[in-house]
Amino acid sequence: MKFLVYIETDLGDVVASSWEALGAALSLSDDVEAVVIGDRVSVAAEEAVERGAKKVYVVEDETRAMFDLERCLADVKNVLSMSGADVFLASHTNNGRDLAAALGVGSGAGVIADALELSLEDGRLKGVRGIYSGNILVDVTVDGSPQIATLRPRAFAPAEKAEGRSAEVVLVDPMDVDSPYEVLGVQRAEKGEISLTEASIIVSGGRGVAKDPELGFDLIRELAGVLGGAVGASRAAVDAGFISYDHQVGQTGKVVRPDLYIACGISGAVQHLAGMGSSKIIVAVNKDPEAPIFSVANYGIVGDLFEVVPALTEAAREKLGK
């Protein structure tokens, strides 16, 4: 089975979960190719080689600096026809999701969307995914060629780098397509800010910060900073205006999958759990010992977050030597 993996780039940088898609492919096949589309992507292409792709198709052009559905789709279709891959994989990012949908619907091929696991059975790709917001798991197979899957970020181990690997790098001309999209402005998160979906550690705050929201989130941010994690929030905290929506975790926010999720002053409503229930380790800091969050948490401290969170920051600083 030949796999083609889409390595998503953004202004030259690879979107980290792309390496997870490559890792998933390499765990199932030794015939794995990658396609890198962007502007100034030589480093990304090199890295795809180091991480084990057998062949890397590179579409490099100024017009590819930012993801454009129309152009990217045309390039991917072109590379697919050159590669003849049986399976196409991408990370289930916004762009990966849109690309896979456009590719699949165009040829009537199904998409295994947001897969948590992948395997091969009799030459057929089988995925496991959640439906009903993760409350039910199902096995999924798809008809059509290529078989397409998008992979939930942080659900698969990234392809490892190794030195001395070599691979054929094929430069592919960008397809000549008119895009209907005109980007008029770009505003980026500050450098160094960790994205929630890619974070391995998340510290989140809820309505429990209400008596002094500014101080509460400052304390949470400080702990996240010391741990090298990202800051999340419950919807109650977002709706109350304590923090912006892009931090919301849950049913109508982001679905996250960190190794460590620390919920501070969050009760653990099902809609919050829908976003963070598959974290590896869950820690709850809550003054109410009856809060439902304790029934999904691995560790907990019953207490006032305004005292406990700074104590955690202090202890972490000491023990991590920061």
Partner: peptide, 29 residues
Amino acid sequence: VVHMSNFRKPPARDAHVKLFEGTPQEAAA
């Protein structure tokens, strides 16, 4: 063209929370 089978509940989380007690400093450490 998408076929789902083997509908099941996700494995339950190991739901035994370990609580740390004492002063905030002791519990945090």
